[in-house]
């Protein structure tokens, strides 16, 4: 079996919900494939209110007082975990943070048993990151507790997808007719995948740009099957970046490169690094985003990462507001 077959693009459901604000009834947040445009707009509207709280001296509201939110991360993370925990704290919830490496998982406890223990501890929401695609779905199936997917394998990272689109909207306004280029390790990127689902109702063009070996086998077919007609693939970065409004290089996941998908790091940098020369081909006023963490000098150079077009730090701030909105929305109750 070739490597491409073992790492084929995960299948999505692509179900569309009835489009109205009253239709918000996500108990869990697992991926953006079941989010309507209206639901995404609702998340954004609430996030606008949360941004104001983040700007206050006293960043605390009592909304989720008495609720407990647990983060359980089976993979390393800085920003996502801190972002979720601060979002919960700013809304007044209590948080408990479990590090899988130091928990009973290290003694051989199964995922479901660990999560059941949290449920028995009366935790209201579990935020889970796991190296296996689908782990949060398994959790949602077996538990009564609400589950938020904070990244599962190469599959999905819904809160990142939302904060990316939110950041684009805040900077560019209407996204109609805009062109987003996502560059690099598409194969392993749950961020790219959640962005594809998230942008599908925004009349935006998405170009995935990577060497052929970093594009999952069957991706073209998959996007067509899922109705993601706004997505195309381009292997040449100079062509892809032409006239782009949003340029989003992804982290080259060095821990997942042992299998020789790229011939050499030097070649990758030469062909796929986003630098000033390449950026000059994009639209004037184009913005730079990166889901982090960055490998500075590999997929992005220093000047671009910290230049005036970079929104990388805004993404992090907006991420807290988006996660506050999500925690608020799944806390129970229907939207009036």
């Amino acid at each position: 079996m070739s490597m491409h077959e073992t790492k084929s693009w995960p299948a999505g459901q692509g179900t569309m919900l009835p489009a109205s604000m009253e239709s918000w009834n996500h108990k869990h947040i697992l991926d953006l494939d079941d989010f309507s445009r209206e639901e995404i707009d609702l998340v954004f509207e609430i996030a606008d209110g949360m941004v104001e709280i983040l700007a206050r001296d006293v960043k605390k509201v009592p909304t989720l007082r008495g609720k407990t939110i647990a983060t359980m991360f089976f993979e390393p993370s800085t920003r996502t975990r801190a972002s979720f925990e601060l979002a919960a704290k700013y809304l007044g919830a209590d948080t408990v943070s479990l590090d899988a490496a130091k928990s009973s998982v290290a003694k051989g406890e199964s995922l479901i048993d660990s999560l059941r223990t949290l449920q028995a501890l009366q935790v209201d929401t579990i935020i889970i990151r796991h190296p296996c695609s689908g782990a949060p779905y398994l959790a949602a199936k077996h538990l009564e507790t609400k589950i938020i997917n904070a990244g599962d394998g190469c599959h999905a990272h819904p809160s990142q997808g939302l904060l990316d689109i939110y950041t684009m909207r805040k900077q560019l306004g209407d996204l109609s007719g805009r062109k987003l280029v996502i560059i690099g390790d598409i194969m392993h990127s749950r961020v790219a995948r959640s962005n594809l689902w998230g942008t599908r109702n925004f009349d935006i063009k998405v170009i995935l740009c990577a060497p052929p070996a970093l594009i999952p086998y069957g991706l073209k077919q998959w996007t067509e099957n899922c109705g993601l007609h706004h997505v195309s693939i381009e292997h040449d970065l100079d062509t892809a970046i032409e006239g782009a409004d949003i340029v989003m290089p992804l982290r080259l996941q060095k821990e997942r490169q042992q299998s020789g998908l790229i011939s050499s790091m030097r070649e990758y940098i030469r062909l796929y690094q986003v630098n000033d020369a390449r950026l000059s081909r994009a639209k004037p006023g184009a913005i730079i985003m990166h889901p982090g963490p960055m490998n500075e000098g590999i997929e992005i150079n220093h000047d671009v990462a910290y230049g005036k077009r970079s929104l990388i730090e805004q993404q992090v701030t907006n991420g807290v507001a988006i996660r506050m909105a999500l925690l608020y929305l799944i806390a129970g109750g229907k939207i009036r």
């Binding site: 509207e45 806390a331 109750g333 009036r336």
Partner: peptide
């Protein structure tokens, strides 16, 4: 807010 009744859209 966290009762299972209704919830309002947060505004700024």
């Amino acid at each position: 807010v966290s009762s299972l009744s209704f919830k309002h859209v947060v505004q700024q």
